[in-house]
């Protein structure tokens, strides 16, 4: 993977296509300068976001995850963001149980016309993640060791704990 800039942390965004992705576009069209840490994944609806995606991002070392959808009652698919709201709120409460600081995860609502609001959301969230610093690693062993394990696993030797 490309080397990361030291100034930046790894922040993943999941944005619904109709409102928030458009809002981020509007922010771009308005040239509203934002921190560059965030990488946006486009999904059709916030209701498409499986909490698994977010957990996977954290497990793989993301420092922050931001989800944004249409404002409640404004969903392009009528009610997708209501499902999202429940799922994401559950996730937010659940994350500490898995050992992930839930301040690293946020969900919000930004409409396609709210470019300035998007700038604000990104700036504040990024600032928050920088205050928290890089996420602690899940893997106490070194990367070389993990790579070795990975090779073993792929060759079918199994990992040490399972013999």
């Amino acid at each position: 993977m490309s080397p990361q800039n030291i100034r930046e942390l790894r922040i993943v965004g999941f944005l619904c296509n109709w409102c928030s992705y458009g809002g981020a576009d509007t922010a771009g069209v308005g040239r509203f300068v934002q921190p560059t840490d965030l990488r946006i994944i486009r999904v059709p609806c916030s209701g498409r976001i499986d909490p698994l995606f977010i957990v996977r991002a954290f497990m793989n070392g993301a420092d922050g995850v931001l989800v944004s959808g249409c404002h409640p009652r404004d969903c392009h698919y009528a009610e997708g963001n209501f499902y999202a709201r429940r799922r994401l709120e559950m996730l937010k409460r659940f994350l500490p149980i898995t050992g992930i600081d839930n301040r690293r995860f946020e969900y919000t609502w930004v409409s396609a016309s709210e470019g300035q609001r998007w700038q604000h959301v990104v700036t504040e969230f990024t600032r928050g993640i920088h205050t928290l610093g890089p996420a602690p690693s899940f893997n106490p062993v070194s990367e070389t060791e993990w790579n070795k394990l990975a090779v073993q696993a792929s060759e079918g030797q199994g990992c040490p704990c399972h013999g």
Binding site: M1, R10, V12, R39, I41, V43, P44, R48, D50, L52, F53, R56, A57, M59, N60, G61, A62, F138, N139, E143, W146, L149, A150, A153, S154
Partner: peptide, 25 residues
């Protein structure tokens, strides 16, 4: 599965940004 936005497709995007430490299973 939603075509064009399957779990595997979105997870592949996540992995592209946050590469896994061991092979995906």
């Amino acid at each position: 599965q939603l075509e064009h936005f399957t779990d595997n497709q979105i997870l592949a995007e996540v992995q592209a940004l946050c590469p896994p430490k061991i092979f995906a299973n």
